[in-house]
Amino acid sequence: MIEDIDSRLLDQLGARVSDAQGYLRIDERRAELAELDRKTAEPGFWDDVSRAQQLSKRAGALRDALAEYDRAVELLELAQTALELADEDEAFATEAREAAGALSELIDELELSSWFTGRFDEGDALVTVNPGQGGMEANDWTAMLVNMYVRYAAEKGWKVTVLDEQPAEAMGLDRATLQIEGRNAYGMLTSEAGVHRLVRISPTDEKERRHTTFAGVEVLPVLPDDIEVDLNPADVRVDVYRSSGPGGQCVNTTDSAVRLTHIPTGLVVTCQNQKSQLQNKDAAFRVLKARLYELEEAKRADELAELRGERKEVSFGSQIRNYVMYPYQLVKDLRSGVETGNVEAVLGGQLDEFVVGYHKWRVAQ
């Protein structure tokens, strides 16, 4: 909450709103939305369902962005009007402070969204978590990270679909892939790509010794249908098998799980959490397409992984973030320097400080 309100503060906020009109390309977005609305009103628009859904989703994202900017303009006008009336009634000063505080928070969010200018930043993400060094501990750590991202997505109002989740024999997970849908989901979650290190007293160690374990997080974009990827179906071996682990009706009683092997590259993708073999196959091809696109981009850019970041061994010395639960409580991002002692809150999904902190660091580089 802003405690002191005056015309200088509102002038500063007004300048930030004016800047937002430029970096958010408000006029361009209004024109694009008008054109999309014209297309959606055309006869036969829904004849091509896939294209129609894609355009409708884009129109929805534009409306949300424009609504946020319009709300910022509205709050600025409200604060300015209330401040003018504050000399006559102290209640208006309170109203001006509240409007200015809400505007400041909203402008912070608009500035954050302006950092996501990559081709797929505004779209959905595929997040895969795999255990690294640490044995059973790494499997448990993988499950903890998956839970953290599911809760973070819920905090952001994003939709999560579990595409693949393979339970480990003793505890935790052997792997998991989530599709996370929401505005700027891919751009935001690129902060998580890399190796995550956990230090704690092992719950399975009778001598209560400290253990260090690792898990790797991969973040890829969900590619739009108009993105061309060199994927010949003849190069893909499709295997079906019975799903393992928890599932809904029929999931574990039929050969609904799908494994794709891309023969030229050796890439393997599995999906088993959808209700039918067809749904699992579609989801698996979506992940495979994203991974092949990443490989193509890496070759063109002459680097290991442009979308996912530098690949490192999932072990000590390669981590991007440490989660220490013993002998002290600390989560620290080794890139941005952001840290907190509230490990439980972070693992419970309160990740914004680290996600935003990483992108502030990235933009400053």
Rank of each mutant, 00 (worst) to 15 (best):
M1W: 00
I5P: 08
L9C: 12
G22C: 08
Y23H: 07
Y23Q: 00
L24H: 14
R30Q: 14
R30M: 14
A34M: 10
D37G: 10
R38I: 03
K39W: 10
K39C: 11
G44T: 11
W46P: 07
W46K: 12
W46T: 03
D48S: 12
A52K: 13
Q54P: 04
L55F: 07
G60V: 13
G60W: 12
E68L: 05
Y69H: 15
Y69G: 05
A72K: 08
E74S: 05
E74P: 00
L75Y: 04
T81F: 02
A82R: 02
E88Q: 12
A91M: 15
A96N: 04
E98G: 07
E98D: 07
E98I: 00
A100T: 03
G101N: 02
L103I: 05
L103D: 00
L106Y: 12
I107Q: 08
L110D: 08
S114F: 12
D124M: 07
N130Y: 07
V146P: 04
V146R: 10
N147M: 04
A153T: 07
K156Q: 15
W158C: 04
T161R: 10
V162Q: 12
A168I: 11
A170N: 09
G172A: 01
D174I: 08
T177C: 02
I180W: 04
A185R: 04
G187V: 03
M188I: 01
L189C: 09
S191L: 04
G194H: 09
R197P: 06
R200P: 06
P203W: 00
P203Q: 03
P203D: 15
T204L: 11
T204Y: 15
D205Q: 11
E206N: 06
H211N: 11
T213N: 08
T213Q: 06
F214R: 01
A215P: 02
A215Q: 09
G216T: 06
V219T: 06
P224T: 04
D225P: 03
I227F: 02
D230C: 10
A234Y: 13
V238E: 12
D239I: 14
Y241H: 10
R242Q: 03
R242L: 02
G245H: 05
G248A: 01
Q249E: 11
N252I: 05
S256R: 04
V258P: 06
T261P: 05
T261M: 02
I263P: 03
I263E: 15
G266T: 13
L267M: 11
V268H: 03
V269A: 00
N273Q: 07
S276Q: 08
A284R: 13
F285S: 01
K289I: 09
L292Q: 10
L295C: 04
E296L: 05
E297L: 15
K299M: 01
R300K: 14
A305S: 15
G309F: 04
K312L: 09
E313L: 09
S315Q: 02
P327M: 09
K332R: 15
E339H: 10
E344Q: 15
E353R: 06
H359M: 11
K360S: 11
R362D: 13
A364L: 05
